[in-house]
Nucleic acid binder design. Structure first.
Length: 552
RNA sequence: GCGCCCGUAGCUCAGCUGGAUAGAGCGUCGGACUUCGAAUCCGAAGGCCGGGCGUUCAAGUCGCCCCGGGCGUGCCA
């Protein structure tokens, strides 16, 4: 509907210009939005206000002249000019009520957009395979997964990818840490590496390796043993991570190994590519990429004086690989502590001849895990961390995901275990799920009384006359627009806010008015209303990856 | 020092590319179950949107300067 209004306004503007009512010129971008108060109608546009400033006319006059050019629109009840020059649109009640039929008929696809023909790759989590996931990864996982679902709803073809940093000093450190525990398990003296990973899970890994190899590793030279152990440890930990993700209902299409980029020569190749473009130089024994000529603050090392390539070097190769796979957009979701990295990567992408808009980096702020308001630490190396597995074991997948998706990505999040566990009022997940369960309970009760669900195409909706019924129907009817808005902002959290507010309106309605036991026509109409709300709640929860229970 | 994020009710946060009288939840106080599920509802109190200057018809939103908090600033990943 919103789209129709803005199209009508554009048409009205063209007509006003054609008839000489308004001077010719460029139509600046304007909005059609939901006004803050119902008395201002269903939609409001600022078109006259933005035009007024460029035309140097009085806004209300501009509004008047645009209205004179407005094409007939049968779904609009009336239009008025208000305040400083807003044009307010009052939509016919029947439009919103008709939308209820649509929601019931379309069910799981209500709110879904047509395929937009575009492919996007969402890369997220990509946690180092050096330890289990913690709650911060959980937030990124929940966010990336929900965003992927949201983009699918908005018509994108989405692939989800996890990049494994399985190269470099950290793998070496991991190997040495596990090897030390392995020796301890065999009752030998072991010097634990100073910068090693100290978590108990390292011992679990060592036990697993002991099971696979027995004492054999003791006979190998140190370097060789570390090599084997770090590879095995990588696989073991990666398997944990996969389990944790699937437990958390987070799905990936592909796990992409950094090491593979070295094995197939892609890192060398991308360096040659940069070299041939004259973007590399040597200084103090290292090789530098002149990223500063593409907007980065300084140049960056790609090959260290030792001859080892940096993480950045393989990351360039990785992104070139992704770009060459032909996506329209690459989305990278990173923890906010990587923000210093964005510019250099954009520089690399541009250096390789791609527009930097092809890449969208979303930074997710970290999570403060609390218990009774007191902070729980999560340093992997200190070995004291808030494992995602423990959190979802304690508060459940639904509550965890919902909580993590309650805030904007760039806003830090407090996650209090005790609050998330509560099954009452202060926990919005159950509030929303309860509305869903309540509706299915009404349906069950209706069935017991011999009342079936009405045929959405046949049922008469004219008994719906209450203002609450209109608002509810409108909330249902704007869900598709919400999906579009949220997806074009790459933010799933408005979905959670919306669901809470829809649930609130429904609970309030439920307490005030009865669905069953009314005159047949009224009961049927209200059943359809409840049905449509149920579909929308389920679809919204589906985007967030939260279940919609029939009973609780 | 420089860069990024954040600062809105007691607490946690919304506020859509600048729009009309700044909104929720929690918490606090007071009410509602013999009727479709009280994991619910109804009502009340609560604000100089960190501070200042600027941009304009219009600023919580944009720009500059301060203050406060977090993060980053490696030939680590």
């Amino acid at each position: 509907m919103r789209e129709r209004i803005s199209e009508a306004l554009r048409e009205a503007y063209r007509r006003a210009v054609a008839s000489g009512n308004l001077p010719d010129g460029e139509l600046p971008s304007f909005t059609v939005e939901y006004p803050p108060d119902e008395s201002f109608g269903d939609y409001a546009s600022n078109i006259a206000l933005v035009l007024a400033s460029s035309l140097r006319m009085r806004p209300r006059d501009v509004a008047q002249r645009i209205l004179e050019g407005m094409p007939e629109e049968p779904l609009i009840e009336r239009v008025e000019i208000a305040g400083p020059g807003f044009i307010n649109f009052f939509i016919k009640d029947s439009l919103w009520f008709e939308e209820l039929r649509k929601a019931c008929l379309m069910g799981r696809s209500y709110g879904r957009c047509e395929n937009n023909g575009k492919r996007v790759l969402v890369e997220f989590v990509s946690a180092n395979p050096t330890g289990p996931l913690h709650i911060g990864h959980g937030r990124i996982a929940a966010f990336g997964d929900a965003l992927s679902r949201l983009l699918e709803w908005a018509g994108w073809e989405v692939e989800r990818e996890y990049y494994i940093n399985d190269v470099g000093t950290q793998m070496e450190v991991l190997g040495r840490s596990v090897l030390a525990r392995y020796r301890e398990l065999l009752g030998l003296e072991a010097e634990f590496p100073e910068d090693g990973y100290r978590g108990d899970y390292i011992t679990d890994v060592a036990k697993e390796i002991l099971k696979r190899y027995g004492r054999r590793l003791l006979e190998l030279p140190e370097g060789e043993a570390v090599g084997i152990v770090s590879k095995e440890a990588r696989d073991i930990i990666l398997n944990w991570i996969r389990e944790e993700l699937s437990l958390f209902r987070v799905r990936f299409d592909r796990f992409f190994s950094e090491a593979s980029l070295y094995e197939n020569g892609k890192v060398d190749r991308v360096l040659e590519e940069l070299e041939s473009r004259g973007l590399l130089y040597r200084d103090e024994g290292a090789i530098w990429f002149s990223s500063s000529s593409f907007g980065d603050e300084k140049d960056r090392v790609v090959v260290r004086a030792s001859g080892a390539k940096t993480y950045f070097a393989s990351d360039i190769a990785y992104h070139l690989d992704k770009l060459s796979r032909g996506y329209d957009l690459l989305v990278n979701i990173w923890g906010a502590d990587h923000h210093g990295y964005v510019k250099r990567l954009e520089a690399a992408i541009q250096a390789l001849g791609h527009p930097k808009e092809r890449l969208k980096v979303i930074l997710v702020q970290l999570v403060n895990l609390l218990r009774h308001g007191k902070r729980v630490s999560m340093s992997t190396r200190a070995g004291e961390f808030a494992a995602l597995r423990d959190v979802i074991g304690e508060v459940g997948v639904d509550a965890s995901r919902f909580f993590l998706l309650l805030r904007r990505a760039e806003s830090p999040l407090d996650f209090d275990l005790e609050v998330a566990k509560v099954k009452g009022e202060e926990n919005p997940v159950y509030y929303v799920q309860y509305a869903h369960a309540r509706i299915s309970s009404i349906f069950k009760k209706a069935k017991e009384r011999g009342v079936g669900l009405p045929d959405p195409e046949q049922v008469d909706l004219s008994p719906l006359t209450l203002p609450e019924e209109r608002s509810l129907a409108k909330a249902v009817g704007t869900f598709p627009e919400l999906v579009q808005d949220a997806s074009s902002n790459f933010e799933p959290h408005p979905i959670s806010t919306y669901l809470i507010s829809l649930a609130r309106s429904f609970h309030s309605y439920y307490n005030k008015h009865r669905v069953l036991g009314q005159k047949r026509e009224l009961t049927e109409a209200r059943l359809l209303l409840a049905w449509a709300i149920k579909e929308v709640i389920r679809n919204g929860l589906e985007i967030l990856g939260v279940e919609a229970p029939e009973e609780m």
